[in-house]
Design a protein around this nucleic acid. Sequence first.
DNA 1: GAAAATCCTCAGTAAATTAATAGGCATTAA
DNA 2: TTAATGCCTATTAATTTACTGAGGATTTTC
Lengths: 140, 140
Amino acid sequence: MKISTKGRYGLTIMIELAKKHGEGPTSLKTIAQANELSEHYLEQLIAPLRNAGLVRSIRGAYGGYILSDIPSKITAGDVIRVLEGPITPVEGIEDEEPAKRELWIRIRDAIKDVLDNTTLEDLASHSEDQEPEEGYMFYI
Amino acid sequence: MKISTKGRYGLTIMIELAKKHGEGPTSLKTIAQANELSEHYLEQLIAPLRNAGLVRSIRGAYGGYILSDIPSKITAGDVIRVLEGPITPVEGIEDEEPAKRELWIRIRDAIKDVLDNTTLEDLASHSEDQEPEEGYMFYI
DNA sequence: GAAAATCCTCAGTAAATTAATAGGCATTAA
DNA sequence: TTAATGCCTATTAATTTACTGAGGATTTTC
């Protein structure tokens, strides 16, 4: 019943790229450092995102990645499906008996509804208005 | 992003007990055979359900299990929480940054909404009207 | 042309989880 | 007394997760 680090870190990558959309490529090193994640692990997560056409890579020095489309056209569902597989609470819904099948379908549709209606634009803009840290003071 | 066999078989057990509610105890052997599952595996799943107070056991010959409450008072959420742990799409939602935290919370609430509003009565009654098997003919 | 910064690929691995199986003891109805 | 059940602890094969390691390919800048 969990989304693994694949989907979670994958979303983190995509949100970072959305924040920098239109400003040229962002390197994985930058994203890894900003989020305290293993750059090498992120490389393995972005490969399927590139294969799926969600990001484009620019190789060589000062290269990196950019979104293939504008942030309002890419959803959390697009990202999660690539990294976690089809959105479904169980394998083989169709094999279940009617009562349980309907339950799994209702859960699946509820999750889909959230993921497919949340865009990278939504996620990136909410990331902007950071909550103050504990102990934060407003210095004039 | 999956509910494992623990939660799925656990629900299967509870639906069978709901169907027999008021008719005395049902043995795991009966449930295992009816659903082509390992009786021994089901024993391990019903132990936490008993510890959580969702079912009561009757030991000895012609014993078995009964629901602790009426089917309309026990939800799929009760069963899933016992066997799969808290309903949440990620561990430590509160540690995530605001944008992702809100996403996980919306997903969590959507799943909760379905699971907590589906009772064993709902599931047992929908199991009654079986779909015809493939090759089924209506013999008069 | 050399060096540095990046992407790209394949392989390995420790820990955890899943989905059981094995073997037996305890209790109770008939 | 026996058969039918529940109860309990341990073991295990397969899979998944979350990485780490090693190095090659490409491109920019000096």
